[in-house]
Simulated scan of single mutants.
Amino acid sequence: MTETAERLKLELSQLSVKDRAELAYFLIHSLDEEVDYDVESAWDIELTRRMQEINEGTASGKPFKQVFTELREKYS
């Protein structure tokens, strides 16, 4: 890793969690050089279907705290 990147890592580690999350999101998405429109379309269809289920009251869900607890237990 370059000296500049090492310096940035040190500086960026001092930022708030929110700022680091926004930067991480930006950096991850900056790696996508091309858009797969078939995948984007498929996600749009899936998200529309899920939103419709939520609005109709036919979707089942879990509280986010329960989901994250289960994920931590599974992957820790």
Rank of each mutant, 00 (worst) to 15 (best):
T69A: 08
D38S: 10
K18E: 15
E40N: 12
M51W: 05
T69L: 02
Q52L: 14
K74F: 04
E46T: 11
V39S: 12
E11G: 12
R50T: 08
S60L: 04
T2R: 05
S60E: 09
Y37E: 15
Q52S: 14
K65N: 03
I45D: 15
T4V: 12
E3T: 11
V39K: 13
T2P: 01
L27K: 06
S16K: 04
Q66K: 09
R20V: 01
F64M: 12
I28H: 08
E33H: 07
M1E: 06
M51H: 08
L10G: 09
S16L: 03
E34L: 05
G61I: 00
D44H: 13
S30R: 13
S13N: 12
A5L: 14
L31H: 09
Y75N: 02
Q52N: 13
V35E: 13
A5C: 03
E11A: 15
Q66S: 06
R7A: 14
L47Q: 11
F68E: 06
E11F: 10
S60Q: 12
Y25W: 06
L10Q: 13
R7H: 07
E56S: 09
P63H: 02
S76D: 07
Q66F: 00
Y75A: 02
A24T: 11
F26C: 09
Y75G: 01
A5R: 11
E56Y: 02
R49M: 07
D38L: 11
E34N: 10
R20E: 03
E70Q: 08
D44M: 10
T58V: 01
V17D: 08
D38N: 14
V17T: 09
S13P: 01
R20H: 03
E3I: 12
A42R: 12
E53I: 00
K65L: 02
A59E: 02
K62L: 09
T4Q: 14
S60Y: 02
E46G: 09
H29Q: 13
R20A: 08
T4K: 14
L27S: 10
L71N: 00
E70R: 03
R20W: 06
R50V: 10
E70F: 02
T48F: 05
D44S: 14
E34C: 07
L12C: 04
Q52R: 14
T48R: 13
Y75D: 02
S60C: 00
L10H: 06
T58D: 00
K62M: 07
E6R: 15
V67M: 07
L12V: 08
L12W: 03
E11T: 08
R72Y: 02
M1H: 04
K9N: 10
W43C: 12
R50F: 07
L12P: 01
E56Q: 09
S16T: 14
A21Y: 10
E46D: 11
S30L: 11
H29E: 15
Y37W: 13
L31A: 13
Y37S: 15
I45L: 14
R49T: 09
N55M: 10
Q14E: 11
E6W: 01
